[in-house]
């Protein structure tokens, strides 16, 4: 009788080996395309910048150091790097604002679409997703056309006599915010739409029947049930906002840089690849924090009682 468990275990081991072989292609792809580049970036962040870009294979913590600090070229004193801190704060701030703005416009839009008859829904969804089929550059330039000095808004305001000089809107935080909110809006609308579409409106009716005001119904019945969609949309907007590059570049120029532009600069004119790599990892960590917060928000729902 001692034989049986052994043969069973052998069979299981063979099975496991077999499975490992089957998983090999997938594992290889993950290693080559996702783990390996990450290792390269981490490695570069602790090397010394080369004179014409690239790196010299000498260990250095200077790259990481420069993320937050700068050394005075004359007397070697340390100080917090104002420029980097400003950009970091602006990145986080503008991303949060972008998320807020897409929430304000995206949730009612998604709600509107999800409550149309099915046939009309497809049409509205198509309209919302059109920007997806359009080049990001083209979309961003379209927003630029709206707000530049001779743009649509300024001309309209001038014509209406609201202003007598064009307002400078381009190359400000406002411009970047507007551009990003516009570009990322579909990423908010779609998951919220999916959540609202799944929502059983008979529940709202039940709430209404049980003496709830519209507001009470919204707070206690509708919001808790569409919340996963709202959180997913927020993450989908916040994460790419944080790393946005094209939109801040066009809308903010050199004046309103974000992390993505700062990183690009280190690999370009700055010729400081280790700093660029360190900044990239910083960005990744920020995203990671946002994602951890996200999983907390969504998984916390099960345990926590409502109300």
């Amino acid at each position: 009788m001692g034989e049986a468990p052994n043969t069973e275990r052998d069979a299981q081991n063979a099975d496991a080996r077999q499975r490992w072989r089957l998983a090999l292609p997938a594992v290889t792809i993950i290693m080559v395309f996702s783990i390996l580049p990450l290792i390269v970036v981490v490695l570069y962040s602790v090397l010394t910048p080369g004179d014409y870009g690239n790196v010299r294979w000498v260990f250095s913590t200077e790259g990481w150091f420069s993320v937050l600090f700068e050394r005075d070229i004359f007397d070697d004193t340390l100080s917090l790097s104002d420029a980097h801190l400003t950009i970091l704060a602006r990145s986080v701030g503008l991303s949060l604002l972008t998320t807020a703005l897409t929430l304000i416009f995206g949730v009612p839009t998604a709600w509107f679409i999800a409550t149309r008859p099915p046939a009309a829904r497809a049409f509205w969804l198509f309209l919302v997703t059109i920007p997806f089929w359009t080049n990001l550059l083209v979309r961003t330039i379209a927003v630029q056309e709206m707000i530049r000095s001779e743009g649509v808004f300024n001309r309209l305001f001038l014509w209406l006599g609201l202003i007598d000089q064009p307002i400078q809107m381009m190359f400000t935080n406002f411009a970047v915010l507007l551009g990003m909110a516009y570009v990322f809006l579909p990423l908010m609308v779609l998951p919220v739409f999916a959540a609202v579409e799944k929502f059983d409106f008979r529940l709202a009716e039940a709430g209404y029947d049980l003496y709830a005001s519209r507001l009470f119904c919204l707070r206690k019945v509708i919001l808790p049930l569409v919340r996963p969609g709202i959180i997913a949309g927020s993450i989908l907007v916040f994460v790419p906002s944080l790393g946005a590059y094209v939109t801040p570049r066009i809308m903010g120029g050199g004046k309103s840089m974000m992390l993505g532009n700062l990183i690009e600069m280190q690999f370009g004119q700055g010729r400081n690849w280790p700093l660029g790599a360190a900044l990239s990892i910083t960005l990744t960590l920020l995203v990671l924090i946002a994602l951890i917060y996200y999983t907390r928000l969504t998984s916390g729902r099960q345990g926590r009682s409502h109300g």
């Binding site: 008979r202 529940l203 019945v221 049930l225 729902r301």
Partner: peptide, 12 residues
């Protein structure tokens, strides 16, 4: 008040 055909209890 109504007892709905689908019950319509609040699942959360």
């Amino acid at each position: 008040n109504t007892v709905f055909q689908s019950y319509a209890l609040f699942p959360h």
